[in-house]
Amino acid sequence: MKTYIDTGKKDTRSGFGAGLTELGKSNENVVALCADLTGSLKMDEFKANHPERFFQVGIAEANMIGMAAGMTIGGKIPFTGTFANFSTGRVYDQIRQSVAYSDKNVKICASHAGITLGEDGATHQILEDIGLMKMLPGMTVINTCDYNQTKAATIAIAKHEGPVYLRFGRPKVANFTPENGTFEIGKAVNLQDGSDVTIIATGHLVWEALEAAKTLNDAGISAAVINIHTIKPLDANAIIKSVKNTGCVVTAEEHNYLGGLGESVSRILAENHPAPQEFVATKDTFGESGTPEQLMDKYGLNAAAIVKAAKKVVARK
């Protein structure tokens, strides 16, 4: 098995902030808009470096999305920043009409996604955003797994022409992908080879999947681990190739199992190579207050839950 080293826990939102800072220096067309959450989104440095390219819109997310769409006319590359809930559900129609249908080059950057937002509770913990965004024609949907990958993705999406939803989170998590690594939109990353089960994970669940693979290996189950950072467009070939080898799959995500990564994987497999699948995801429920660790445990979103799901799906083959 390959070994992955946690180089020190960091939050993915800081990866976004670091990427945005680099973009500010390298691309003068990059502008940033924020709805009163500059510190939470780690946009302070960009704001300090480029005050003329930073737009504080106040607590007015709908206007922020519309403004971002308008700023593309004239060649700007707007990055909007707020929590995932206010980046998607609150402004769905603005994104649908002014960004997606109008094919505008807006980067919707969403922090505090999922249940690991923690103590603020369900009003702020969106578990439906991947589904909302992947249903929009033309929208690219990315959910990064650690600081390094979030930084790389932030830089990469500026070069991609078209609307992007970039999802990341609040808590400090293992940082294990290469520093200054390349980020290829739509390309899955094979983290572990395995022959008994394929674990397909996204976001914070990728590290948990690697931990699960170690436990499974000790129990005599060989698990492949794929990091799907791009949920749309989905790397179908990587999924089919692995599942043809293993014969079953566990999908793992910090999102509702309705509308998330798991359902996208199910469709790919149903069309190409039907196989038993288990879903590590929230099961059509809202979250609640608690620490991130408590919540991931209660809602079955950690390495232990992945191990359990893997054993179950292997038995179904």
Partner: peptide, 27 residues
């Protein structure tokens, strides 16, 4: 046509964005 419209209430925001872009472009 530079922007889809139909679902109401979005045009002023878009126009503001385009106006801000013009200022940045010194247009």
């Amino acid at each position: 046509i530079r922007m889809a419209s139909g679902s109401l209430g979005q045009g002023i925001s878009v126009a503001i964005g385009a106006a801000e872009a013009k200022k940045l472009n010194k247009d």
